[in-house]
Amino acid sequence: MADLHFLANPARFRRFSQRVLPGLGFATVLMLCACLYMAFFVAPADYQQGQTVRIMFLHVPSAWLSMMGYALLAGLGASLLVWRHPLAALMARAAAPVGASFAAVCLLTGSLWGRPMWGTYWVWDARLTSMLLLFFLYLGHIALSRAYDEPERGDRAAAILALIGVINLPIIKFSVDWWNTLHQPASVTRLDAPAIHNSILVPLLWMAVSLLFLFVFLVLLRTETEIDRRRLENAAAQEEGAPA
């Protein structure tokens, strides 16, 4: 039964991803081009920050996506540990570098935004520190999943790390409310109306959707690769005559 599962699900996933990927990639490129145009030529400058507000169009969506990506890793970790879902481990391997990249973009753009606006590239306040921790959690996940000779053990260890690290997500989100920070409180995700004028909010949300497309594209593509890679490894093991 478990064996059937293992064969059926990745194959179905693979068929699905092959059908979806070309269109998704094309749509992502188109939307990102449109968003770049909006970010630079349609969106107005901010009343206080001037042109540097354009950095927000990268910074904020990558922060969202890196947090969403970690929640995804945690969900995949749970489904691996509890239900032993065969695809979960492969997808977690595929998704971790994607999330790490978005976290890196968030940190770098934030730093380049902080210098002209706050007067510093970096401070150790609760928001910035917890975001840096998220980046390191991703790196830990990547390292741990590749640390063992048997990939299954690495998958298991990385899944446990993902579940422990998920506690960092609410800390990142609420750090600006719980503690005094240099970073300002949330502008978009608050209970009342967003504190961003529509002319800036709309490009921001479009950029978020486009980068989400890129995120999904990358995760699907890399999961497909992981499925093929696992098959390749199994074939190699069988050729050596090892009882797989």
């Binding site: 400058a45 901010d46 920050q49 007067g119 240099l182 409180p185 949330a186 504190a195 004028h197």
Partner: peptide, 18 residues
């Protein structure tokens, strides 16, 4: 020894602020 500016969570074009 160091002065940092904190900015608020409001974003809008200058005309709207005015």
């Amino acid at each position: 020894r160091e002065v940092l500016a904190k900015h608020d969570e409001n974003y809008m074009p200058p005309e709207v602020a005015k």
